[in-house]
Design a protein around this nucleic acid. Structure first.
Length: 496
RNA sequence: GGCCCCAUCGUCUAAUGGUUAGGACACCGCCCUUUCACGGCGAUAAUACGGGUUCGAAUCCCGUUGGGGUCACCA
């Protein structure tokens, strides 16, 4: 026995790390889950290890149609491809726990055999009553091991009668369970505080605790990297490893992602699903970059990373202990940063897609046109859709003119000056941005006015608003004919 | 409430006994500029509190306070 253990330990150390992201399929990928998945992925890729996706679907009451597919899709969208997982055919599979029921049964029976687990036939009423009594006495609610004293014959009779049962972990009375956490160091619990956890439910499904330990062992997981919410149930898992006589993996409990009020990040206080952020127009690069920085830094001042760069820099040892507030403002900033680094071609494609979902869906714009728009607008937005929102004049003629801007920039001479410019335009080629520029400058010189006197009204006329790209960029992009139309319309409207 | 974890600017964080406690986001101001941005420069802003240990503590120890997690036949 001892020999085997030593052999296993040696083998494990020499082997490459095997880590898993083990979500329950609730219907979507939570950003906290994304962070856990990401750290697992980064650690695996950094160390040349294996990243495994295991679906913890042992709660039939919580079954959600399509949840697994959705989860995988979100993971893929973020670029986190797993090496092993649903669909993989390996000696460690299948990777859906609901397909591994026989395995858990086999192992839990082993525990019953060794008296480390026992059958329990108590019904819900008795348990509830027990809990209430304990609560009344201000005690911790814990199962009273009532069924542990059942004789083998009594158990057999109950089983023969098809009585519903669960199998419980036999937790020792008062013993210290110690384990080391890679992030938090040594942690110990007293078993007096630990309940005789149900391992196998009456529907034949395992609970998380059993399935998790059995699978981590069978799938040769070397590092269990998971959220801090699992910290308090870790002693149960350690106990299970001891009872099975299996080597305990290394644990790393990640700090939680928090709401602005510091509670655990939840749906109630904003978006938590990866698909929500995708839907709002966040780039996967930005989301991944941002989430990576929630609880980890390389130790330098760098904040901009692509996924492959994170792989190069990531160290599990540098993960923080304390929870991190999910600060949307910083995400927005990173989104803008990533947006600006993208090629014009890619952004034009994204703009076309965004346009097809907008009120301009019926209109069509050439790639060349959209490329010009993108380059004019990219420094001014954090999201692609903002190009449409803030630059509507690239997609339709302005019909209203921003009141504050008009008040500030439109004077009695404006209409006349714009008319002069129209005349000049009609007699010119204006094939480049520079042509528009030169024409305006020479006009200003001729009329002996400051260029600002005409440039501001011109902006109002072609865009309807006070801000945006350089006027000559706008003029060039929308073209001479439309510039003339817009000036005429504006002059007419504002002269009333 | 029991148990466990955590504690540096509003937020994310750096500083592994010796720093004017650094950076980033946000906010504000200035510069650049025909606008809005981008960019540049600058300002405000933190070691929760109290005890130790030490020549010296954000850093080590203890306590207090605060926050969080967890106490299911959910994960």
């Amino acid at each position: 026995m001892t020999k085997v253990k030593i052999f296993e330990r040696k083998k494990m150390i020499s082997e490459k790390p095997r880590v898993r992201f083990a979500p329950s399929p609730t219907g979507y990928l939570h950003v906290g889950g994304l962070r856990t998945a990401l750290y697992n992925y980064l650690f695996a890729k950094r160390t040349g290890g294996t990243f495994i996706l295991r679906i913890e679907d042992t709660d039939r009451k919580r079954f959600v149609e399509g949840a697994v597919e959705n989860l995988i899709e979100s993971l893929k969208w973020c670029g986190l491809n797993f090496d092993e997982g649903p669909g993989s055919v390996t000696e460690c599979g299948p990777y859906l726990q609901s397909e591994r029921l026989d395995i858990y049964k086999k192992y839990v029976l082993q525990l019953v055999e060794s008296k480390n687990a026992y059958y329990c036939f108590c019904n819900a009423e008795r348990l509830e009553k027990l809990r209430e009594e304990q609560k009344g006495r201000n005690e911790q609610s814990k199962y009273d091991k009532h069924c542990m004293s059942l004789s083998d014959d009594e158990v057999k009779t109950q089983l023969d009668n098809n009585s519903p049962f669960v199998i419980r972990l036999n937790v020792p009375e008062a013993q210290t369970v110690k384990f080391n956490d890679m992030i938090r160091g040594d942690i110990e619990f007293n078993t007096a505080m630990i309940d005789d956890q149900v391992l196998l439910k009456s529907d034949g499904f395992p609970t998380y605790h059993l399935a998790n330990v059995v699978d981590d062992h069978l799938m040769k997981i070397t590092h269990a990297i998971r959220g801090e919410e699992w910290l308090s149930s870790t002693p149960k898992h350690v106990l299970l490893y001891q009872y099975f006589n299996w080597e305990v993996p290394l644990f790393a409990h990640l700090p939680l992602l928090l709401n602005p009020d510091k509670s655990k990040l939840s749906k109630r206080q904003g978006d938590v699903a990866v698909e929500d952020y995708k839907g709002k127009g966040y780039l996967k690069e930005a989301l991944v970059n941002f989430v990576a920085l929630l609880g980890w830094t390389a130790g330098d001042d760098r904040e901009f990373y692509y996924l492959d760069e994170l792989v190069q820099a990531f160290e599990l040892e540098r993960v923080n202990k304390s929870g991190a507030v999910f600060d949307i403002k910083k995400l927005d900033w990173l989104n803008a940063e990533h947006l600006r680094k993208k090629s014009t071609t890619e952004l034009a494609g994204m703009l076309a897609e965004s346009l097809s979902e907008s009120k301009y869906a019926e209109k069509s714009f050439s790639t060349e046109y959209l490329s010009l728009v993108v380059d004019a607008m990219r420094e001014r937005v954090s999201f692609i859709k903002e190009i449409i929102e803030n630059g509507s004049y690239f997609f339709e003629e302005p019909t209203v003119y921003d009141e504050a801007t008009v008040k500030k920039r439109w004077t009695a001479e404006s209409a006349g000056l714009l008319n002069e410019y129209v005349s000049e335009l009609k007699n010119s080629e204006c094939n480049t941005k520079d042509d528009f520029d030169k024409l305006l400058h020479s006009l200003a010189e001729k009329l002996e006015i400051k260029i600002a006197q005409i440039i501001h009204p011109l902006r109002i006329a072609v865009s309807g608003v006070g801000g945006g790209p350089g006027v000559f960029d706008i003029l060039y992009i929308i073209g001479k004919e439309r510039v003339i139309e817009r000036i005429n319309r504006c002059v007419e409207t504002l002269s009333k």
